[in-house]
Design a protein around this nucleic acid. Structure first.
Lengths: 219, 219
DNA sequence: AATCCCGGTTACCAGCGGGTAGGGTGACCC
DNA sequence: GGGTCACCCTACCCGCTGGTAACCGGGATT
């Protein structure tokens, strides 16, 4: 589950040990959160004692930040990659939603570090996750802005809605033990998102369009 | 901002003091999170010393839980109230989205306790927020299930998407200093959500319907 | 005017957990 | 085969913060 089988008590090369420690830390932080996780726990999980941890990382905070940055980056790349890979907007939506589902289903519940980080004290960490979210939103908003007749702010708001839908949907799907199969869940969310942005000026090119009512109304 | 003007050094009745302490605690917890907030901070904010706090609440955890429960309940009532208040699905969507926006814009940034709680250690607290989220989802899913041709699991997944859209959208809107006016932001999100669920069997009764493609496709 | 009593304060304790000092042991090289 | 280097361990320190013990003072009551 942790990748390497933690051969308890073995002497590892510096690089291998570091990689193993990162995996152990990821698991413990993901399970318990930043505050509840003790450095002893991480060391023990890695089958090693605490000072070894401090030979590889200057402190608990830095260790956490390293992991946070890694996985935040992974999310951004998955999402922006999904959007850049094609020009067809429907495929983009489908791929972006799928990216969230795959990220969340990724190894070691690492998504928890990004989506449920319990470290609000450190501004460094906060900025890492916020910036990652922003770049995801930007990727989506970029596609929305160029194609739809919306200004920056409104396009971003729309993009945030889509991101929120994907993120929360993916998290819930995972927590519900995937009672709905992945592909169908992705299809459901995609359908929700795709129909949602349908009706804004030029976003839809393959499906039906409804020229009437492209500004929101109500009240 | 805190309501009562904290008349520093005054002797208050038991009830008044308790209420004031709750307000102070709400502000400090919302600003700093559970872990970074010290009981001294809360006491100081209330213009009082620490033992006073312990005369009203048995401990930090219980104080936090009390607040969490209060505001989680407030959210649930806003959302479920919005949905129960009318039978028209479009109005329901609009009111539910608006409920999220109003909750987030509520006094003292209390929404942070519910949406960004950094207390993952305590299962009690976790269950409070999870249960609140669940009840919001249920409220939405209830409307979706009865009217659409979807089974329980798929209806809930759809509902989660809508909830996520509203929640994340509202949070972002607030953080962006409301560059888009509230009503328009709500309208945008509503439009996104409403069009999103449009196309599922019988959900839409006033707007256009598209009988074709009600099962999701792709791949 | 002495007495309660209630709401408040200062000063302290104790446990937990991040971080470190210093010593041991095997592999590898000369 | 002895030195050296890297890796790892046991044992300890100490600051921070949740929680408490003991004491204080003024207003209403008698």
């Amino acid at each position: 589950m942790t990748g390497t089988a933690t051969p308890r008590g073995a002497r590892l090369s510096r690089g291998a040990r570091r990689a193993q420690l990162l995996l152990a830390a990821r698991d413990v932080f993901a399970e318990q959160g930043y505050h509840a996780a003790a450095m002893d726990d991480i060391a023990e999980r890695a089958g090693v004692s605490k000072p070894v941890l401090y030979q590889h990382f200057p402190g608990k905070l830095e260790l956490y930040q390293a992991l946070l940055t890694t996985y935040a980056e992974e999310l951004v790349e998955r999402v922006s990659g999904a959007i850049e890979r094609t020009g067809d907007n429907k495929e983009r939506v489908q791929a972006a939603v799928a990216a969230y589902f795959d990220f969340v289903a990724g190894e070691g519940k690492a998504y928890r570090l990004v989506f449920e980080s319990d470290l609000r004290g450190d501004p460094e960490a906060a900025s890492v996750v916020e910036s990652a979210l922003d770049r995801c939103i930007d990727a989506v908003a970029g596609a929305v802005t160029t194609d739809a007749g919306l200004d920056q702010d409104r396009a971003r708001l729309l993009a945030v809605g889509l991101v929120g839908l994907s993120q929360v949907g993916a998290q819930f799907w995972l927590d519900s033990d995937q009672r709905v199969p992945r592909d169908e869940a992705v299809a459901l969310m995609t359908s929700l998102a795709w129909r949602g942005i349908g009706g804004f000026p030029k976003l839809t090119d393959s499906p039906d369009q409804r020229p009437e009512q492209q500004r929101t109304d109500l009240h």
